[in-house]
Design a protein around this nucleic acid. Structure first.
Length: 300
RNA sequence: GGGGGGGUAGCGAAGUGGCUAAACGCGGUUGACUGUAACUCAAUUCUCUCCGAGUUCGGCGGUUCGAAUCCGCCCCCCCCCA
């Protein structure tokens, strides 16, 4: 099995700097595992690594899409696996770095996605309860896991059921085992520290010209419908284009949303991934983990 | 000094005699998650608890079977006029 090092973790946990340090030591190449950093131009708000920070380490799946484009797990899964193959062939270590748990897991495990027609707007006039009742007929098993209020998930499951294998059928076909030899490293500093870092980072983003970046790409109303505008750091600016708003309010919202996001990430990794958390801000712990990685790499 | 408005849970804000431990929003906490996942959704959020009990709506006192809601006094905040 191909070996892959995963550096996952909460937003603002220090993935970027650690990934560079380890990539250099391990002769690795970095694959971005972050749903928003695939967009060209959206640099400040997504906390994307800068060219000068890369320090010569090759980076993949960054800046691969125009900010107007749609992106999703299946696309990530395909591209990520391609990159893993390429890098492995070069005898380098693929290092997957990012915070989008679903993307990472879908690429690394045998999640099944099928070709589907693009947009399914059939449901837009139907209320959620009716949709849920329909799903109850089409794929009752999935209903057990989808809350009746969760329209987005219900619509998705309905689309799957209509177009091919239903959601539950797909899941049954999967082994739920990794396709690679993975070393999972989930960076999760203590709550206090992460909150502090988030605050600092948002301040830095504003200093670095977040406002200008947002204005550059999202001044036109149509652009604000793009998926890329839904990202934290961007969507909070919506009122800014409509009326006079206090920038501090926007900043505060970004901080709060980022904090809530970090919590969701923590919950996800804790319960979805067989890995322990690493306090990325504790040098001793980092060193210990690096030792374990070195051992793991020696195993054949 | 005169006139008016107001003080409700961490914050904002409903409620103007019993159905109110008190709507709703935000924030907090916990959790779910297989094609928008930086998404979407759920539970919980006065205190102690298993049912249940005990304290709340600026403060003190009163009316009432019953008060966040009515009355009196006091404290604080905002606006207008002096």
């Amino acid at each position: 099995m191909k070996k892959i090092l995963v550096i996952a973790g909460l937003t603002a946990s220090g993935k970027t700097s650690l990934s560079i340090a380890w990539a250099k030591k391990l002769n690795g190449e970095i694959i971005n595992g972050d749903s928003q950093q695939v967009y060209k131009g959206l640099n400040i708000g997504t906390a994307k690594i800068r060219e000068d920070e890369m320090d010569g380490v090759p980076h993949h799946l960054i800046d691969i899409l125009d900010y107007s484009e749609h992106f999703h797990v299946k696309a990530f899964q395909e591209r990520c696996r391609e990159k893993i193959d390429e890098i492995s062939e070069r005898k380098h270590l693929p290092i997957l770095v990012g915070g989008t748990g679903l993307y990472l897991k879908a690429a690394l495990y045998d999640y099944i996605f099928e070709e589907e027609n693009d947009e399914q707007d059939d449901f837009k006039d139907v209320d959620t309860q009716t949709l849920y009742e329909e799903l109850l007929e089409q794929d009752p098993k999935s209903c057990e896991k989808i809350h009746p209020n969760n329209r987005k998930r219900i619509v998705r499951a309905l689309n799957m059921a209509k177009q091919g294998l239903s959601k539950s059928e797909r899941i049954e076909k999967q082994s739920q085992k990794p396709l690679y030899d993975i070393f999972w490293c989930v960076l999760a500093p203590t709550k206090n520290l992460i909150d502090q870092r988030i605050k600092q980072r948002v301040d830095l983003m504003f200093d670095a010209g977040l406002k200008e970046e947002v204005e550059k790409y999202f001044s036109h109303k149509e652009c604000r419908q793009y998926q890329s505008f839904q990202a934290i750091g961007y969507k909070e600016w919506a009122p800014f284009f409509e009326m006079d708003v206090n920038l501090d309010n926007i900043k505060e919202k970004i901080v709060i949303h980022t904090r809530q996001f970090a919590k969701r990430q923590k919950t996800w990794f804790k319960n979805q991934i067989p890995s322990r958390f690493v306090d990325s801000l504790n040098p001793d712990e980092i060193e210990t983990v690096f030792g374990e990685i070195s051992e793991w790499l020696k195993e054949s």
